[in-house]
Design a protein around this nucleic acid. Structure first.
Lengths: 224, 224
DNA sequence: CCTAAGATTTAGCCAATACTAATTTAGTTT
DNA sequence: AAACTAAATTAGTATTGGCTAAATCTTAGG
């Protein structure tokens, strides 16, 4: 079997995967920002990962995961999301904290523990933020849905996903009742603020916050 | 707050604590053996830990934890034993595997998660091997009990503790029904083999195996 | 009381992973 | 097309934590 990969390597691969989902280019700076590391450190690591055939690196033009690299990334993401759900559901860890906790645990759980957690949760397919949990084989369900900020006034839908990147933002979303499953109707949109109705309650939230919320592909028109 | 200590440092402190429980001297070689590391590496680390005031190091004569060092060690051991119990009880991880799993998890769980685990378990005081779980304040119950190998034929007692150092040995103990709570009667002792009755069943086990088993301070004489 | 064996430490080295500062490249602007 | 800017890379350095080989200390036996 191959030598186990370091936590640092797993973090880089995960970050590359997640960035690649949103932009066609995975740049050095983007990675550096995401990992809170100097750009030079990223370049360094990219050369190492390329030598290990975990990424393909075109100097000055970004990196992409190889198949092997993607496998690793998906396995780490599976750990992460299973742990998030487990911590939330079985141990009552609050939704804004599960991400940070899982970021550390994801690197140290065994295959066996991963299986037991998945079984205990009933082989779930979504984490508490609505992100899909990759299968052991590395398949991931597509994440559909439209941005709350891109819905027109009058539209309504059910929240399917919220970004888990920043714990504070998640805490604010939770406080506003904006978590997966909640029903939202857009009342009015402005450049800085969005007015919505959540589970009957009228609310105004900042556009920044609303940008972390995704709705299902549901009705464009309000129900009668 | 102080910078968080590395996993390596935590491992050294834990090992020093555990060795100190059994021998008055904590030697370089003993540590090297326990941590599976070269003796020179231990010396190196001892100097570092001494500079950090986590241990007192008398060159050529061993180390001892400072109060600060002992606090850290006990906190790590608390994590370890809570996790062992949690994994065993809530996730069904087998008793010979919990130790290895906990060895990795112990370094990454937050204070908050520690608390939630302790609460979920009802603030337990013993781990699955019968080792006491230190309190948050760093108190540890004394581990009494006599070695199974030192009991005379005819004596009986309840197993209070088994060594968890080697997974294979624990697996053998589990297979023989020799886990904390089991009632044992010593039938005969020899240099290589011990004959016992466990929960009614006659068994012969190697002395090496029996050396990992501790009985309560109970009856020296067999019940009528 | 001296010496050899065994334990410990020292010296010098390496890999992983990060940093800053300096340089180079790519892409855009005039 | 020259020049500028932003991004990326290179060069050189530090720290952590490990290693081997060589030197040194402790201690038990003779």
């Amino acid at each position: 079997m191959p030598a186990p990969l370091s936590q640092a390597i797993e973090d880089y691969l995960k970050a590359i995967y997640l960035i690649a989902q949103q932009s066609r280019q995975v740049t050095t700076t983007e990675l550096a920002g995401r990992l809170d590391v100097a750009p030079a450190s990223v370049t360094n690591m990219m050369k190492r990962l390329a030598r290990m055939r975990l990424v393909r690196h075109t100097p000055y033009h970004g990196v992409a995961l190889t198949d092997t690299g993607a496998k690793v990334a998906l396995q780490v993401i599976r750990h992460h999301r299973l742990l998030e759900l487990y911590l939330s559901r079985q141990l009552g860890v609050s939704i804004d904290q599960v991400h940070g906790e899982a970021d550390r645990l994801e690197h140290v759980i065994s295959e066996e523990l991963e299986d037991r957690i998945a079984t205990a949760l009933g082989e779930p397919s979504l984490d508490p933020h609505g992100d899909p949990i990759p299968t052991k084989g590395g398949e991931v369900a597509a994440t559909g849905g439209r941005l709350l900020t891109e819905a027109a006034p009058g539209e309504r839908g059910v929240i399917t996903r919220v970004s888990d990147r920043d714990a504070r933002r998640v805490r604010e979303l939770a406080a506003a009742g904006l978590l997966p499953g909640a029903e939202v109707e857009v009342v009015a949109t402005g450049p800085r603020v969005v007015e919505i109705r959540v589970e009957g309650q009228r609310q105004r939230i900042s556009t920044a916050l609303a940008e972390a919320v995704y709705l299902d592909a549901g009705d464009r028109a309000p129900a009668a």
